[in-house]
Design a protein around this nucleic acid. Sequence first.
RNA 1: GGAGAGAUGGCCGAGUAGGCUGAAGGCGCUCGCCUGCUAAGCGAGUAGAUGGGUGAAUGCCUGUCUCGAGGGUUCAAAUCCCUCUCUCUCCGCCA
Length: 432
Amino acid sequence: MLDLKYIRKHPEAVRAALEKRGAGFDLDRLLDLDDEWRRKLFTVERLKNRRNAVSEEIARLKKAGGPAEALIAEMRDVSQQIRERDGEIRQVDENLQALLLHVPNVPHPLVPFGRADTDNKEVRRWGGRPEFGFEPRPHWELGEALEILDFTRGGKVSGARFSFCRGAGARLERALINFMLDLHTGRHGYTELFVPFLVNARSMTGTGQLPKFAADMYKVENEDYYLVPTAEVPVTNFLRDEILDGDTLPRKYAAYSACFRAEAGAAGRDTRGLIRQHQFNKVELVKFTRPEDSDDELEKLVRDAEEVLRLLGLPYRTVLLCTGDLGFSSSRTYDLEVWMPGQGLYREISSCSNFTDFQARRANIRYRAHPRARADFVHTLNGSGLAVGRTLAAVLENFQQANGTVAVPEVLRPYMGGMERITREMERITRE
RNA sequence: GGAGAGAUGGCCGAGUAGGCUGAAGGCGCUCGCCUGCUAAGCGAGUAGAUGGGUGAAUGCCUGUCUCGAGGGUUCAAAUCCCUCUCUCUCCGCCA
């Protein structure tokens, strides 16, 4: 969330930022509530000051054996007034905080203005699109033909937007996860975390999913547990309510998790294949930095994610999101889009964002620049490194052969027991 | 799930016959002194949030709140009562 004091001091700057995002938000109502809250606070604090002073006086009188009845009677009345006014203030404050949690982050000055994803700016492009001597097929056709992806049984066992990986497909999924984690922890200096897949509402609020996007998530009935939509939530909240030593920054974590998304409002979109599932795997990168370092760290984060695609040999482009396409909590976001030959389009496979102090303020994550310095909010960043299901789909489509088999990218072979090619594999039958 | 114990400042840890304890003491940290170097020693300082005032500013002055969370009793609660959460120990159950 934004700093209320900042909003109070620079209401026009905030208004302009919200306008650029195309976010319809009633800033005046928030400012009015803030004003009301401060006025009421001021009056009740005067009463409390009086109560504190007289209470001391009463203690002194009683000790000296003097008469305190008149003062006690007066305080009875004052305390009653305080109770009433505290109630009013609390009401105003709750409304104010609730509203504040719905204000999105202010876009970074370098973010291009735009209304929709068509206004995003491509910043680089890597890899030639592979030439096929045949019509490349989409991954769901390849996967089903090879019997490594099974959407029909996913539907039977769970429902729409669920699937099974089988045999070499399951192995490939696992290989990708391990390859990504090994790369980021081994060469990019991230510390691996394995995280809870269920988190509480406080965590969901910390990273910005709640309260505004409750409909996008799965909640466990009768429990304060949500299924994580991304490892960003548990990893960022890993350091919630902590004060970090400035010397330990930046802190970089890589975490695999399953991700669960309700995909409310996506009815009819991407109904085929692995692109939009209710459950998918992802390796997430999260950084905690000093405010002055977050711009540079975002660039490095994007490079770390791109490295995965380069090593796999998957063509991609990097896109800077415009103001209108920016996520709620983000100040600046780069998307990586991988080339999908079977569908003839670039498809988002990673999203790397700088949240500045927006999440840190919600989750109360601070640091001290020096041991005596006052604690200040860190900046948080995160990015997919990468979405595993979509990566698997991209591998199938980019490495498909004329005969319907799929070559295994060089870097994955050690993770696949040396397998060089995925062919249709019959169920193994063990005989006694 | 059953029984018991606990939750205090960056950390550890005092504080229950309610008032002068926002909080002893220690550790850590910062500054200064001392020291050939290191270690030790000496002195001072060191919670957070928020309102108001003031300043060009690092700030300074002042009020309020915070001893797991919420509620209650009282003129007054870290201290009494209720509810909840979490942690630890034992038992049960389980991967």
